[in-house]
């Protein structure tokens, strides 16, 4: 177990930079979620830590030691691949034992640790199966057991749940978190699914075009995204632009939002309130309700403000009394306004 640090990591493919000066700390024993749109460099970062990608410049530390010159097989990592990469010529048990055989662990010790690992992922009863006789969720567990049985210093997971269907994915998220907590390995987890990242991680990092745009504990990043990209990528956000004036932010329809600096602010869809009569709140806009979408417990309203689509979500009860379409007032409390630093 060890902390991981990458420092000013750069990896270019031709002219494009898959990683652009990424500096990031992954605390010891923590669960770190890496998020970002497709092609943003998540896999590249993970593979650079694993040693499959050699960075052009920059440094990688595992447990405080630089590892740029350490080949993959000596980095003592555990990795779970998106397709699980189980060895098809071996049984479940042999798959899990592989890393121990490679380390020439004694037979008794190997048997004991394989059993422990399989019990941890609750697959003890399938030890003798061949891997092609397993379901997707079971394969995922075998891959986990195989990756942790060698007690690696860091566990790297590249979208390990993306091949599973929604229900199983939620089960496996809970399972993954439980296993990680029991073993206490520093875990770095790549995912497309922001909800997954928010639920599982102690810390998250958001990548865009190879750059790290924001990182920190999930709640902190969510509440204070610091840049419009993060605000929109993590959760959902309505971006509102205007001209800064001494008294506040002047919007294109003439509304003044007193005390805000701008030029861009964001409001979460769940913070927007809709009314047919003018509300007393200082931050309010005149807009057109275009569509109400019923979604079970939660509903969504699609709103048009100055030709820009905005979104509000809430319990269906919150939207009671609104017309299906028509002019409405939008308002939100001052404390749920998201402001960005002058330069994002």
């Amino acid at each position: 177990m060890a902390e991981v640090r990458v420092e000013r990591l750069v990896k270019a493919y031709g002219a494009a930079r898959a990683l652009d000066e990424v500096t990031l700390d992954f605390p010891d024993g923590g669960f770190f979620g890496l998020l970002g749109p497709s092609g943003s460099g998540k896999t590249t970062l993970l593979r650079a830590i694993a040693g499959f990608v050699l960075p052009d410049t920059g440094r990688v530390f595992i447990g405080g030691e630089p590892v740029e010159n350490v080949p993959v097989e000596h980095r003592e990592i555990g990795m779970v691949f998106q397709n699980y990469a189980l060895f098809p010529n071996m049984t479940v048990e042999e798959n899990v034992a592989f890393g121990l055989h490679v380390r020439k662990t004694g037979a008794a010790e190997t048997a004991k640790r394989v059993k422990e690992a399989l019990d941890l992922v609750q697959l003890g009863h399938l030890a003798a199966r061949k891997t092609h006789q397993l379901s997707g969720g079971q394969r995922q567990r075998v891959a986990m057991a195989r990756a942790i049985v060698t007690r690696p210093r860091v566990l790297l997971l590249d979208e390990p749940l993306s091949a599973l269907d929604k229900a199983l994915r939620v089960d496996m998220q809970i399972e993954l978190k439980r296993i990680q907590r029991e073993v206490g390995i520093t875990t770095i987890f790549v995912t497309h699914d922001q909800e997954e990242a928010l639920t599982l991680s102690d810390r998250i990092g958001i990548l865009k075009d190879g750059k790290l745009v924001r990182h920190g504990p999930p709640r902190e990043v969510y509440d204070d995204p610091r840049n419009p990209f993060t605000a929109q990528f993590l959760g959902d956000a309505n971006l509102i632009e205007g001209k800064p004036e001494p008294e506040g932010l002047r919007l294109s329809d003439g509304t003044l939002l007193p005390g805000l600096k701008g030029p861009t602010i964001a409001v979460r869809p769940e913070s927007l309130k809709l009314d047919t009569t003018e509300p007393a709140a200082p931050f309010r806009l005149r807009a057109r309700l275009q569509q109400r979408i019923f979604g079970g417990a939660m509903g969504t309203c699609i709103i048009d403000w100055q030709g820009r689509p905005l979104k509000a979500v809430g319990r269906d009860a919150d939207f009671r009394g609104l017309p299906d379409a028509g002019d409405v007032w939008l308002s939100w409390p001052r404390e749920s306004t998201i402001e960005f630093a002058a330069k994002a």
Partner: peptide
């Protein structure tokens, strides 16, 4: 699949 070889390497295999 190349990922099999990568998996083996990540487990420490030469």
């Amino acid at each position: 699949d190349d990922s099999l070889i990568e998996a083996a390497r990540s487990l420490g295999a030469k």
